[in-house]
């Protein structure tokens, strides 16, 4: 009897052990990488979206999914790593619009609805989840650049349907009006990129008549003046020129990532404003893409959406530049 009992215990014990061993089977922890796959924006691929980051939330909307121009508008919670669908963009569904933030309010406007380049502009209030139409941009365009700084919005360059542009306009939320801003010395272009470091806005890349531009500029909002920086082909090993890239800032450095250069690219370049020099970083690990979007709250950055050729992408990756220094050492 004792023997039988011990037999039962042995079987039970062995089986339990087997269960424990299997349920503990290791989930391979990903190596600490430079790019970490984050929330998948499930099944909603879109490119040429527009957006802005306010606090710890990235806002992204409009765009084109290969079939339709989109009007839906979403918020990505950086801490919680999830999405929420917000109030629909009230203007015509469009892509290649610009988005920027001024003092906690988001703005999206201009762009292309599939037929025409557009001028209309809207502000988004995050607290009330409502859109308000504001004064229209004086001239229609798509694939422009837009940035908000020192309480004003600036929109310039782009394509008006016939020509690439080099003109800039300044938006004053206090008077709800646009005024032309003269003084940009660069060439006309579309699909350029900007990033902001310590209150200065850097502008580069873009394309015009099939030529990828390699001039690089800094805008000082205090004096509203543009100053030329070293060209993007200054060093022989630079391969920064491109269009449809994303620009963002992290820990005092500027970045230009992904984009289009005779096809989608996933390379990443880091700009040091102190030395006016560029360094190549580890390439974006998600699928190579153009017309993506970057969300950055200053300490973390996420890149997602976009397309490669005619395949539209829906993933989002987080970029850890400090991990790259270790890799390259």
């Amino acid at each position: 009897m004792n023997k039988r009992k011990s037999y039962v215990y042995k079987i039970t014990g062995l089986a339990l052990l087997a269960m424990v061993v299997t349920s503990c089977s290791s989930d391979d922890d990903d190596d600490l990488g430079n790019w970490v796959d984050k929330s998948v924006f499930d099944g909603s691929p879109r490119s040429s979206v527009s957006g802005f980051t306010i606090g710890n939330t990235g806002y992204m909307g409009v765009g084109y999914d290969g079939d339709d121009y989109l009007a839906s508008f979403w918020a990505y919670d950086i801490e919680g790593d999830y999405w929420s669908q917000k109030a629909d963009f009230p203007g015509a569904a469009r892509n290649a619009a610009v988005g920027f933030e001024i003092d906690g309010t988001g703005y999206i406007g201009s762009g292309y609805d599939g037929v025409d380049e557009l001028t209309d502009f809207y502000s988004y209030d995050t607290a009330s989840n409502t859109w308000t139409e504001i004064a229209s941009l004086p001239t229609a365009r798509r694939s422009a650049v837009g940035f908000g700084i020192n309480g004003y919005g600036y929109v310039g360059t782009g394509y008006d349907g016939e020509n690439d542009r080099k003109d800039f306009y300044k938006y004053d939320p206090a008077t709800d009006s646009w005024t032309e801003l003269v003084g940009f010395g660069g060439n006309k272009r579309r699909s350029a990129t900007t990033f902001t470091i310590d209150g200065l806005v850097y502008l580069g890349t873009g394309v015009s008549n099939g030529v990828y531009l390699d001039d690089f500029w800094v805008f000082d909002p205090a004096t509203e003046s543009w100053t030329s920086k070293l060209d993007l082909d200054e060093e022989d090993d630079y391969a920064i020129a491109r269009s449809n890239a994303v620009g963002f800032t992290l820990n005092g450095y500027g970045y230009i990532a992904t984009g289009e250069l005779g096809g989608a690219t996933n390379t990443v370049w880091e700009y040091d404003p102190a030395s006016d020099e560029w360094e190549q970083k580890t390439s974006f690990e998600g699928a190579t893409r153009q017309d993506a979007i970057a969300f950055s709250n200053g300490s973390r950055v996420f890149i997602g959406m976009g397309r490669t050729g005619t395949l539209y992408l829906d993933d989002l990756d987080e970029f850890f530049p400090l991990d790259e220094y270790d890799d390259e050492d």
Binding site: S39, V40, D42, S72, D77, G80, D81, Y82, W83, S84, Q85, K86, A87, D88, P90, S128, N129, T130, W131
Partner: peptide
């Protein structure tokens, strides 16, 4: 949710303005 991962949180009716 997908598995245990929250992918969408919708506190307000999606697409509508306001809360």
């Amino acid at each position: 949710l997908r598995g245990e991962k929250i992918v969408i949180v919708q506190e307000f009716v999606p697409g509508l303005p306001g809360k």
